[in-house]
């Protein structure tokens, strides 16, 4: 079955992915995705009824530690990587109107 991705879907996925694609990139993305999904659809040949989805190969358990307060101030080094900063904070465009 050939997958068809609509303009709306590409638009919606762009929003989820936080990517702004040009017209040409959108066309490419759609073609790539349709081709990949056609290929991925071969998985439908497999009967997976009753099979538990396996996210990790080994049992993964929560790892707990004592909640001990420590005093490490790495803020200066951390902020050194920020594209924009103000005083002791990351600077971003206005978030609340």
């Amino acid at each position: 079955m050939a997958n068809k991705i609509s303009d709306e879907t590409i638009e919606y996925v762009g929003i989820l992915a936080k990517l702004e694609l040009s017209g040409e990139e959108k066309a490419d993305a759609r073609a790539d995705m349709e081709k990949m999904l056609d290929y991925i659809d071969t998985l439908n040949e497999l009967d997976t009824e009753g099979i538990e989805p396996m996210s990790h190969v080994f049992p993964v358990n929560n790892v707990f530690r004592e909640d001990v307060a420590s005093c490490i101030d790495g803020s200066e080094d951390t902020l050194a990587n920020a594209p924009l900063k103000k005083e002791n904070s990351f600077k971003v465009p206005k978030t609340i109107g």
């Binding site: 996925v13 989820l16 992915a17 990517l19 993305a29 995705m33 990949m36």
Partner: peptide
Amino acid sequence: VKRRIMLGSFVLS
């Protein structure tokens, strides 16, 4: 990278 982020966002939507 964009190709895989798009595909990944789609299959998780």
